[in-house]
Design a binder for these strands. Structure first.
Length: 236
DNA sequence: CCCTGATTCGC
DNA sequence: GCGAATCAGG
């Protein structure tokens, strides 16, 4: 897979929206989590709370003279690059998990009254209003309101369909690591998937691999076919 | 163990 | 430029 414009755009949007690299990789498909991270860094959209970089400003921690760790020699103790990047001054969305829910600051009194004078000057600005098409009232000079906060990051898959499957593996919970063997009938309220850890390299867990992949017996020695996924033809 | 992002470096 | 391997914290 190559990084087309669309894929880069999606990566950027999801990354800035707070999705994890794994989620982005899964969504894009054909790339690994590392690929996503690598691309994100190459694109310059770093940052976001990293579990491993929580600390900062280390005054020369006396570490053991660890030998050259893995491969080639590290580039010595290069001075920390200034990293000249501070373009996107947009307010960072809160880390995942928190629900900032930027409330528009319920103003007990509308600001149309006290926001007229500019800060730092006693001169009240002239109150100029006009009504636009549709009846909205235009702001007057010096009346700027706080910028609308960016929309909070949205979980793409927040809600479970129903309580009875709240802890079951549902379609949107599927990934490469859980067994996709269907349990029950699609469309029914409790339809879900096995969800066990997969037999590595297979889409099913060990048990269901045994059901999905069966050796062919010689003709004439066939046993009755095993139960099909979904429990077989619907019985009513 | 699982997860996360950061970094390195051979390709 | 790409991304696997690796590191390192939660």
């Amino acid at each position: 897979m190559s990084w087309t414009e669309e894929r880069i755009a999606k990566l950027t949007k999801m990354w800035e929206g707070g999705s994890t690299a794994s989620q982005i990789a899964e969504e894009l498909g054909g790339v690994s989590r590392n690929a996503v991270i690598g691309k994100a860094h190459r694109l310059g959209l770093k940052s976001r709370p990293s579990p491993v970089k929580a600390n900062e400003a280390k005054p020369a921690k006396a570490k053991e003279p660890a030998p050259a760790p893995r491969k080639a020699a590290p580039a010595a103790a290069a001075p920390a690059a200034p990293a000249p990047q501070a373009k996107a001054a947009l307010p960072r969305p809160e880390p995942r998990g928190t629900a900032p829910a930027p409330k528009p600051a319920a103003n007990p009194k509308p600001s149309t009254e006290n926001s007229q004078p500019l800060p730092g000057r006693g001169e009240p600005m002239p109150r100029i209003h006009s009504v636009g098409p549709g009846g909205f009232v235009r702001q007057g000079p010096g009346e700027q309101q706080a910028p609308i906060p960016p929309a909070p990051p949205r979980r793409r898959v927040p809600a479970k369909p129903s309580p009875e499957v709240a802890d079951k593996t549902h379609l949107l919970d599927l990934n490469d690591r859980v067994c996709r063997w269907p349990m029950g009938h699609p469309g029914e309220a409790d339809f879900h998937f096995c969800g066990e850890k997969v037999n590595p390299g297979f889409p099913y867990c060990v048990e269901h691999c045994g059901r999905a992949y069966q050796a062919q017996l010689p003709r004439g020695a066939r046993r009755p076919p095993p139960p099909l996924p979904f429990g077989g033809p619907r019985v009513r």
